[in-house]
Computed example of a mutant assay.
Amino acid sequence: MKSFFIQRLEGLLLLGLGLMIFKLYVSGHLTKLIAPKMVPYALAALFAFLVISLLRMKKQKQGLHNCECESHREPSPAMKVLKYSLFFIPIILGFILTDFTLSGEVLAKRGMVQQQTPLVSSYDAGKHVNSEKISVTDDNYFEVLDDLLNNLDTIEGKEIELSGFIYREDSFKEKQMAIARLSMSCCVVDATLYGYMVNGNVKNMKTNDWYTITGTLKKGVYKGEAVPVIDLKESKKIKAPEEAYLYENVEIIQ
C-alpha cells in the first residue's frame, strides 16, 4: 500500500510539473524565466513529464498485487518531505505567482554590469558614436553600449535616447539614478543588469517605473570604472514592454 501511494504521488508530481510548464507557456510567462532559445527544451520536458507520469500511474496499477520481497532501508520521513518538496513547491509557485520579474532589492545587490567581454561580432564597431543622435533599441542595445565604452573620450555632448526601467542603489545621490535593462542568456538565474548612469532632476522618477529619456552624454565614473553618463534633458513615462528582458546578446559578447 505504501508503494502504491508513493508511485501515485510521483506520477501526480510529474503531471503537475508538466501542467505548470504548459500554464507558463500559454500565459506568456515562460520567457520571463528562461530565454526563448530554451523554450523548445522546456516543451520537450513538458512532454517527457506527461509521458513518465502516465507510465508511473500505469505501473502502480499493474503492480498492486506484486509482492515486494526485497528488503531495503526506508528513508526517514523528514528526507521524504524534503525530497518531494523540491517538486511540490515550484509547482505551487508556478501556478499562483503572476509577477516573475526580479525585485529591486535583488537587483541592487547584483549591481550594474558595464565592461563586457572582448568583442567578437563583425558589426561595424564605432558607427553609433559617429551619429548625431544615438537611438538605443532592443536590437542595438549592446552594440551601442560597446561603442560608448570603447570611445568614452569622444562621446562628450552627443545626444542619446533610450528606454528602460529606473534603477537605484543606496550609494546613489538624490540627483542620480540609472536607466537599465535586464539581459538573459539562459534563465532568470543568470539575468544581468546593464544600464547607464543618469544625472539630473530625477527625484520624482520612481524606481522600477519605465521611461523613455533623452539626454547628452559625458564621461563619468561608476564604482571606480569609467562609464558613459547621461545628463537628463527630457523624460516620458511609458508602459513596461511585454518582453522586459533583452535576449541573445551573443552577437556582441560570448
Score class of each variant (00 low, 15 high):
A78G: 08
W210D: 08
Y245E: 07
M197K: 01
Y245W: 09
C187N: 11
M57V: 05
V188G: 07
T192N: 06
D146M: 05
E70I: 02
D231H: 07
S185H: 10
S3M: 00
G104Q: 14
M20E: 14
F100I: 08
L55R: 04
N204A: 15
A48T: 09
I134L: 03
M38A: 15
Q114F: 01
S171H: 06
E161F: 03
V188M: 07
G126I: 05
E68T: 03
I252G: 07
L33C: 10
K236H: 14
K2F: 04
G200N: 06
S122L: 12
V229A: 06
A244M: 15
K237V: 12
V26G: 08
D147W: 03
C69H: 02
V136Y: 06
A35R: 08
E251A: 12
G94H: 07
A78F: 09
F172A: 12
K173D: 08
K218H: 13
P90S: 03
I91K: 02
G104F: 07
I238Y: 08
V144D: 08
L148V: 10
V221D: 12
E143D: 08
D153S: 14
S135A: 06
L119S: 09
I52L: 09
C187D: 13
E70M: 00
D209K: 11
N150Q: 09
Y25A: 15
Q254V: 05
M20W: 07
L17P: 03
S71A: 05
M57W: 09
L43C: 12
H128T: 05
F4A: 00
T212W: 02
N140K: 02
T154I: 09
L13T: 03
G18L: 04
L54S: 11
I155F: 03
G215S: 12
C69A: 04
M1E: 00
L102I: 15
K218M: 13
F165C: 14
I34C: 12
A244P: 15
A108E: 11
D147R: 03
Q116R: 10
I6G: 00
M112K: 01
S163Y: 01
D209R: 10
D147L: 03
V136D: 05
D190F: 06
V136H: 06
S185P: 05
Y84H: 05
V221N: 13
K175N: 15
R73A: 12
E225T: 10
